[in-house]
């Protein structure tokens, strides 16, 4: 009871800020795969159980499904999924994997952009695309323990079970 007066201003401040965030969320959350913004890439191949998660919604990630910045792809024990990003980067996640497109931007006219892919568990095979060709330092892959800097390359990352 004594604390109440001091909590109220704090709550007010907190409540004043969110409208912008809330709006941004509604704008970004419509039913999966219908936003007008250019997607980061497309699912090209998919086998077994593969789920795409975006803003609390999930859908089966079969070939043709658009992938956007911030999306998470989860594969089951029998699952694997291959994505081509708009700069020609190929990202493939193997069984029991969790892959997040944490950051992605690409300008096709200048071929400038950046990519951060986070492999929280499982396996990832990557073939870098046009961003990596032009500015390799803009392409990063991380696991919970390792960060990769890429120099125009194909490689595999194995994050195991992903538990510390």
């Amino acid at each position: 009871m004594i604390n109440r007066p001091s909590i109220v201003p704090a709550l007010l401040v907190f409540c004043w800020l969110p409208p912008a965030t809330a709006q941004a969320q509604t704008a970004a959350t419509p039913v999966i795969a219908s936003a007008a913004e250019t997607p980061a890439g497309l699912v090209k191949r998919s086998a077994g159980t593969v789920t795409l998660l975006r803003a609390g919604l999930s859908q089966t990630a079969q070939a043709g499904v658009a992938v956007r910045t911030g999306d998470t792809l989860r594969t089951g024990p029998d699952g694997a999924v291959g994505i081509t990003l708009s700069d020609d980067t190929l990202l493939t996640a193997g069984p029991n994997s969790e892959l997040v497109i944490t950051a992605y931007a690409y300008n096709p006219t200048t071929q400038e952009g950046n990519l951060l892919a986070s492999l929280w568990r499982g396996t990832l095979s990557m073939v870098t695309g046009l961003i990596g060709k032009k500015a390799p330092e803009q392409v990063k892959v991380r696991t919970r323990t390792v960060v990769l800097g890429v120099r125009g390359t194909e490689f595999i990352v194995d994050a195991g079970e992903g538990t510390k």
Partner: peptide
């Protein structure tokens, strides 16, 4: 990594 590489686009 055969299962992984088989799904590479």
């Amino acid at each position: 990594y055969g299962t992984l590489l088989a799904q590479q686009p």
